[in-house]
């Protein structure tokens, strides 16, 4: 259990450092950075490299935004294995839905509850 906390910290931190380098050195906007990271997550899962990272670093790999890309690609691949090419479209949001639904639901609740600050 404890090695998992250590590696979650390290791997999560490293992914954020990659993001920070994109901000500072490549001078990219947050939108660009997040998009590149999401696409990287999907591509790494295509090569079968992201799941071992999740096994090794736990939340260090599931909490950064790269995991969105990974879940989308993973869902699509799993469904395609079962149902052929159509699975690529049907399976995509199977595993990812919690993050996006949560963002929408809590965003709306927050808009109802919180007051905008100046």
């Amino acid at each position: 259990m404890f090695p998992m906390f250590f590696w979650a910290f390290v791997v999560g931190g490293l992914i954020c450092v990659i993001g920070q380098l994109m901000f500072d050195v490549a001078k990219l906007t947050p939108g660009h950075t997040m998009s590149i990271l999401v696409v990287s997550g999907a591509v790494l899962d295509g090569f079968g490299l992201y799941e071992p990272l999740v096994d090794f670093a736990g939340a260090g790999a599931t909490v950064p935004i790269t995991s969105f890309g990974n879940s989308l690609a993973h869902g699509a691949l799993m469904e395609a294995e079962k149902h052929g090419l159509v699975g690529v479209l049907t399976g995509m949001f199977e595993v990812t839905s919690s993050g996006i639904s949560a963002a929408i639901v809590f965003g709306f609740i927050a808009a109802l509850v919180f007051k905008p600050k100046g």
């Binding site: 799941e51 071992p52 990272l53 096994d55 090794f56």
Partner: peptide
Amino acid sequence: KHMHRMRMK
């Protein structure tokens, strides 16, 4: 063992 977890599958 943790270091081998990358090859879990």
